[in-house]
């Protein structure tokens, strides 16, 4: 038998070896339950911990092996997680992005590897790569919160707005929803609008600083509940907690308790539990053959006030 020329042999063998290596890198999981990755922007915030744990819990209930990855609010860390979970053969990703633009390429890589991604809470700026995006209807929630705000202030007064992270779509969806109502009432004057990065301590510092030049405010609208708690602390420290109304957004436990205690006026209840469960259930449908998904699934956000607080539990659970 005549051997193949050495050059031709190498030409065929090397690509074959490379192909085998590539296939080996994307392990297939034939034994045991299918694997679902839950990739969360940060686990340094109780709200996102609830989101991640609820997603993993529902995935496990549905018979999957679920692993939570913490991106630590870092898009590079998130990219590493995606590389690893693609290589180790995960079957679906329940994903809370760190960045609406920067996270698109990660989801695209997963799609190219045949892994469906279901975004939770935060959108990515693409309709093409994620299988579905399950998010809170932040804008409408803040429209309703804005109406309540206007009525509580009897359509007049001075207020401060504390924004979340300026690069986050949710920050602007909330702010725009609020202003789409409040700006129609000319006797409501916004004396300051500053970012406190969704952070409690920073909100306290920012509001303390604002109140030095604006001591006569009537209300503070905060883009999340952590900032609402920080704002409330600043008001307590300055002896104005009883005269200035604070409004938050999220439905976090400490703010729900503060509403019950009549310290904070209202919040808008997002449900990380429902969002996470919906994402896990859609992933389950996908893995069982469904392919027709709505590109975006918004979840209703409800206004929680001192009048209706008894109908709600923290993080979207119902009493």
């Amino acid at each position: 038998m005549k051997l193949l020329p050495r050059k031709l042999y190498l030409t065929l063998l090397i690509p074959l070896l490379l192909l085998l290596l590539t296939v080996r890198c994307r392990e297939t999981n034939t034994d045991g339950p299918k694997k679902v990755a839950v990739v969360i922007s940060t686990l340094n915030n109780p709200w996102f911990v609830v989101l991640g744990e609820s997603a993993a819990e529902r995935a496990r209930e549905l018979g999957y092996e679920a692993t939570i990855f913490d991106s630590q609010n870092n898009t590079s860390k998130e990219a590493e997680h995606f590389e690893n979970l693609i290589a180790t053969g995960f079957d679906a990703i329940l994903f809370n992005p760190t960045d609406s633009e920067g996270s698109v390429s990660n989801v695209k890589r997963a799609k190219e590897a045949g892994i469906p991604t279901f975004c939770m809470d935060r959108e990515i700026n693409s309709l093409e790569v994620a299988t579905s995006q399950i998010t809170s209807d932040n804008f409408t929630g803040c429209v309703e919160l804005g109406e309540y705000f206007v009525r509580k202030l009897s359509k007049k007064g001075k207020y401060v707005e504390l924004l979340g992270l300026v690069g986050d779509n949710n920050t602007w969806n909330r702010s725009k929803g609020f202003h789409s109502v409040v700006d129609h009432f000319p006797e409501l004057e916004m004396v300051a609008q500053q970012s406190a990065d969704f952070d409690r301590s920073k909100a306290m510092e920012v509001l303390e600083s604002i109140m030095q030049s604006n001591p006569d405010i009537d209300a503070v609208f905060c883009g999340n509940d952590a900032m609402a708690m920080g704002a409330y602390q600043a008001l307590v420290a300055s002896g104005k907690a009883d005269s200035v109304m604070v409004f938050g957004f999220d439905g976090a436990k400490d703010v729900m308790d503060a509403i019950k205690d009549k310290k904070i006026e209202a919040t808008a209840m997002q449900s990380p539990k429902q969002m996470a469960r919906t994402a896990a259930e859609l992933a389950n449908e996908y893995l069982n053959g469904a392919r027709n998904f709505s590109k975006k699934t918004p979840l209703q956000v409800k206004v929680v006030t001192q009048e209706n607080i008894d109908a709600f539990g923290a993080y979207g659970s119902t009493n």
């Binding site: 700026n125 998010t135 804008f139 602007w172 969806n173 709505s294 590109k295 975006k296 918004p298």
Partner: peptide
């Protein structure tokens, strides 16, 4: 239809 809008705003 919300699914037709890349930017929800």
């Amino acid at each position: 239809d919300i699914g037709d809008y890349q930017n929800t705003m």
